[in-house]
Design a binder for these strands. Sequence first.
DNA 1: CTTTAATAAAGAATTTATTCTTTATTTGTT
DNA 2: AACAAATAAAGAATAAATTCTTTATTAAAG
Lengths: 219, 219
Amino acid sequence: MEETGKYKKGRQAPEPTLKRLPGYLYYLEQVREDGILNISAPTIGKDLSCDPTQVVKDLAFTGVKGKPRVGYNVYELIHSLEEYMGHNQVNEAFLIGAGNLGSALMAYQQEQALGLRIIAAFDIDKKKIGENIGGVHILEYSKLFSLSGRLNVKIAILTTPNQAAQEVAEDLINCGIKAIWNFTSVNLNLPEGIIVQNTSIGSYAAVLLRRLNDAGNNL
Amino acid sequence: MEETGKYKKGRQAPEPTLKRLPGYLYYLEQVREDGILNISAPTIGKDLSCDPTQVVKDLAFTGVKGKPRVGYNVYELIHSLEEYMGHNQVNEAFLIGAGNLGSALMAYQQEQALGLRIIAAFDIDKKKIGENIGGVHILEYSKLFSLSGRLNVKIAILTTPNQAAQEVAEDLINCGIKAIWNFTSVNLNLPEGIIVQNTSIGSYAAVLLRRLNDAGNNL
DNA sequence: CTTTAATAAAGAATTTATTCTTTATTTGTT
DNA sequence: AACAAATAAAGAATAAATTCTTTATTAAAG
């Protein structure tokens, strides 16, 4: 099989594409539940309010092949997306900071398929230690070091208060963590090669508020 | 004052810019706490790991003016950002669905300056009704209709289960809501003019997992 | 068996966003 | 007072992402 095209399998998908993939997956699971076997890009585009050629290009990154006049096989497509997104492998993660957001993520991980499994949470608050949220035990933060020595966890979710973020992140690197999902507002300063995924919920509020104010006149 | 330039005040800021603004604001609050009075774009860029000219252009959208050789006045800059982001006005919001994420947002709204104030939460779960999380009362969902008649709330945060999302969203529109911050996985189908801000936390997980897998070989 | 319509796939063009370059301004220094 | 250095601001160039256009493939209809 030749792989020359710009959007063919093998090329690295751009970030906007990656961010759209979970949306396709959720949608396709609904479609599958409805007993639909094949679906076309134009249909997906219409249902998700996006450009059909973008759907084609996004899905092409997963390596799936569609058939003219028929569309994509829904099962194949779901499988292809899950594989590309790494959902078929176990992605174990630590969570640091079992506050509001941390707890929500723990309770959340089953319902919403995030594609990763939080296997332990850590906090310094004695009152929280020993608790179990969404099947995840909250452990004393100092246990992180011994536990990470035995387990081979590469991903950490950082939901600490801002002032603790940088220090905790450095600890995490020392524990062998390679990717940090950072929910704090802090710009983490870490060695080259560490993957940091900043996720600021406030960014979305900013877009919403600004758009509302821009529209303001005609309400 | 002439406003001809592409990045001058008055033009609508692009979404990537809007998403970066909360990051600047948090950073500048730290800078202010350190007693620093002026700051330059190159310094901001270095600290936030981004291009200094991008900093200049992003900040220009708020209408703030900097001085060569000096930089921006920190107070002015913070004020300008807050005004542009609508933080100086009261942005009241309803929250629908007081589950894990909804509760987290309620508890969260003080610490993290989201720029909006949740004034009431609604749920259909009898066990949750009457609870108070982060100063927000959880009310019976049916109360939404009478309450929205008296108050003039334009923003709603949608944190219901997916299957309820579309129906609740339609109710919200009937209650006069103009902007929905949608945390569900559902692509809402709503009348023209309604602002929908989709916020899928899973999108970030997808980017993180893919980047980790792409780097996979050299770990 | 031929034709037609739908669609994936590939490529081109457009638009948008980022980065680079130049200019002009301002403060500190000689 | 003139000069030099730093920096905001504006504009140009580059890069990236999206949308549009064309092509080729496939299944259904006649």
